[in-house]
Design a protein around this nucleic acid. Structure first.
Lengths: 339, 339
DNA sequence: TTGTACGCGTTATCAA
DNA sequence: TTGATAACGCGTACAA
């Protein structure tokens, strides 16, 4: 790898001049500029970003941390494609690193990006607590944004969404159409999203004076296979069921499969609603409907803020954004009246 | 951010000693070791990876380039989750950067990772030609591995899979079960994979003396929506059709949807086979079957090679691996006999 | 308009 | 067992 010094020698100028040509800052005569260009070409010169970033103390790239437990599934590709799209015209690079599967590893992933001197870090957390994230944000001068969690202190650094509310609405939607025997398949209960969705379901039942039947609530793990297992468990209880709310689309698809296999037709006998509205979900309707999760909006908004912070002179942490994105979920239409 | 120098001062030793403690190389007395640890703790010290990598000339991280046209879809998450899993125990970081949507941008993404001094780069190309990649590999000392393409020169640097062969087999599978009127939905024809899958289909028809009916071949774009459109086009021709081969599962799902909407039952009236076997695909059977693409094996194998190259002392490019992974696709069972 | 020289935060090579 | 000190490749005042 040839260095700037070699290019300088080839062009018969000093390092500083080459640097000026490259950065476009400072005065360089047209003649020497051409010589330098030629020398760069000849040498096949490539700047060393490590050296550049070290010297200039910035990197033009922002890091994203996502647990790999999320890698399986369309939800994740949505996050990434949004982020990529959003950053595309901004001249910054997105670097994704794996948060693996523990709080410790999520911490390390963030540290890694910070140690690499990324200009900012976005985290879609799975294991870290909001208190710890608040603390991490405090400890670092680089902006650290948190997606899908409501932080206690640094509310300008987080974007979240009302999972409980959307789950409440989806349940209400079914109730409004005459359903009373609504089963619920949870996500992994170590995930706040799973907890919130369950609680929205319960709140709706309570509000409409429908008793909560614990037999109708079964644990899932976000995967299609766990949706199959959940329906198996539900059927074993021999309870009456007219609708199933699954905490995500993958499980809803598993549930659908199992019901079909058992000869229970969907949606005429049992209605199913999932969450997230993954790309293929609309194509599975009318068997399946789905609540749209505002991932795209969240990611998009978070990057907007970040860009403002970075470009617009980012002074203190609490000074720019105070509002929260409260993108409201809406239930996709489906033929859900009880037959 | 405190530096090593500050830590050294706090501990009353020199930079060199701190460096030794951190790297675990060289002799340091237990006593000073403890002082240094304490000073690191006190200072909240974090190594600057830019400086470290610059000085040591390595980075312990490997880059991955994927076009964002692939981000939408389960196929991509499979690539990433495999790569992450594989690298997890290896102590290396995976850095994903966006290849965006042109050859130029794919080039730049590779350059970026190289400029960042990644130890190696894996590319899942979409637009770059194999000749250009051969050339890129030649120009750089870091190993550059190519997934899903057969290179001309550096065969030890690529992993590919026999898309034509698997498409041939899928077609044959249908023919063997009595199908003669088999429609084909292509992928985007600027993708080699799409071309190969089409050619496997044609070859099978030829081999069994079934004429190729151009009306039964329609262009798709990999998306579910394009699957819908493809079926629409097929139906408009009023040709007899007993089976559809879609070049990926997403399009197959779109096709399924459209047929259902038209009251044509799947698979009893028309059988559908997709490709890739995305996570939800098995749960859509028996309506849909899918040919498993060996992505996992490809990614896994490519990283195995890389690790050997990096750890085992990588000398010349042509000297270690010569064999190619020829993971054979197998058709998932489905009830595909013509009724 | 150009060059000199120092700093960025490490690692690594010698002496001591 | 430790400490100077020279790289690593680049940015950037400052001087010329």
């Amino acid at each position: 790898m040839s260095t700037m010094l070699e290019v300088a020698k080839k062009a018969g100028v000093s390092k500083a001049t080459v640097s000026r040509v490259l950065s476009g800052k400072g005065y360089v005569s047209e003649a020497t500029k051409q010589q330098v260009y030629k020398a760069i070409e000849d040498a096949g010169y490539r700047p060393n970003l490590l050296a550049r970033n070290l010297a200039s103390n910035k990197s033009e790239c922002i890091g994203l941390v996502v647990t790999n437990t999320l890698y399986n599934g369309s939800y994740f590709s949505e996050i990434l494609s949004q982020a990529a799209k959003k950053l595309e015209d901004n001249g910054r690079q997105l670097i994704l690193v794996d948060g693996k599967h523990s709080a410790q590893e999520e911490r390390e992933a963030i540290q890694f990006l910070l140690d690499l001197r990324c200009d900012a870090v976005i985290i879609y957390p799975r294991f870290l607590t909001i208190d710890e994230m608040d603390e991490i944000i405090e400890r670092h001068k680089q902006p650290i944004m948190v997606v899908n969690r409501k932080l206690r202190k640094h509310q300008s650094h987080c974007i979240c969404c009302d999972h409980k509310g959307s789950s409440f609405l989806a349940t209400k939607y079914l109730i409004d159409r005459g359903h009373r025997d609504i089963a619920f398949i949870t996500g992994s209960m170590d995930s706040p999203t799973a907890v919130e969705r369950l609680s929205g379901y319960k709140e709706a039942l309570n509000q409409y004076d429908i008793g909560i039947n614990e037999n109708l609530i079964v644990l899932g793990k976000w995967t299609p296979a766990s949706g199959v297992a959940a329906v198996e468990a539900l059927l074993s209880h021999k309870e009456k069921i007219s609708a199933i709310l699954a905490s995500n689309d993958e499980m809803a698809i598993g549930a659908m499969k199992k019901l079909n296999d058992e000869g229970i037709s969907v949606p005429s006998k049992i209605s199913i609603i999932g969450f997230d509205n993954i790309p293929v979900a609309p194509y599975l309707s009318p068997a399946l409907s789905s609540v749209k999760d505002p991932v795209s909006s969240m990611i998009s908004e978070v990057i907007n803020r970040l860009i403002s912070m970075l470009d617009g002179g980012y002074l203190s942490k609490e000074n720019i954004f105070t509002s929260e994105l409260q993108a409201r979920n809406s239930v996709v239409d489906g033929p859900f009246a009880v037959k």
